[in-house]
Amino acid sequence: MVSKKISEVFFNPFSKNNPVIVQVLGICSVLAVTAKLEPAIVMGISVTAVLAFANVIISLIRNTIPTNIRIIVQLVVVAALVIIVDQVLKAYNYEVSKALSVFIGLIITNCILMGRLEAFALSNGPWDSFLDGVGNGLGYAIILVIVGFFRELLGSGTLFGFQVIPQAFYDLGYQNNGLMILPPMALITVACIIWVHRSRNKDLQEK
């Protein structure tokens, strides 16, 4: 049996307490890597992995970190994990690593990490922290995938690089919406997701 608290820790970040659209953390990468679906998924997995392990490590040493220097300690732990992810990606998937360019390095400064480490890992045990990390990472990945899906589908008519919109449509005069590929449309796509999400969850609306 999974206790209620654990399932809350794990499932809350998916919708009610989503790190991206409710807590508004880690926006930079959501917007920047989602022009295509594949980098979006790789980014989602990388962040989930880093977040889960950083949470566990910080949670294990939480009683020995002096409060004054905790930010530096957290940064060092996160930076070490990100370097590992960066090197692994370079070794096994160079194409995507090139496409993500600096944004893998920028996982270090992804606010989701600092936010979860400060708010959760510093005051909870390793197992809870691990679940919290995976939950929040997946909550982040879901938004990434949704944004990436719409931007690639409408922007280039493909998914994972495969043609999805049939040629017949183009013959009838359908055109790819080139604007979807450009950075500003990422913001507007996220705004639409927030709109839909908040009209379903009225308690999240701001005054």
């Binding site: 500003p184 913001l187 705004a191 927030i194 709109w195 908040r198 009209s199 609306q205």
Partner: peptide, 16 residues
């Protein structure tokens, strides 16, 4: 519109 207040509209403005 209510669901867009605060963060939602800020996203759209930044996009524009």
């Amino acid at each position: 519109p209510k669901p867009l207040r605060g963060i939602g509209i800020t996203f759209i403005l930044t996009g524009l």
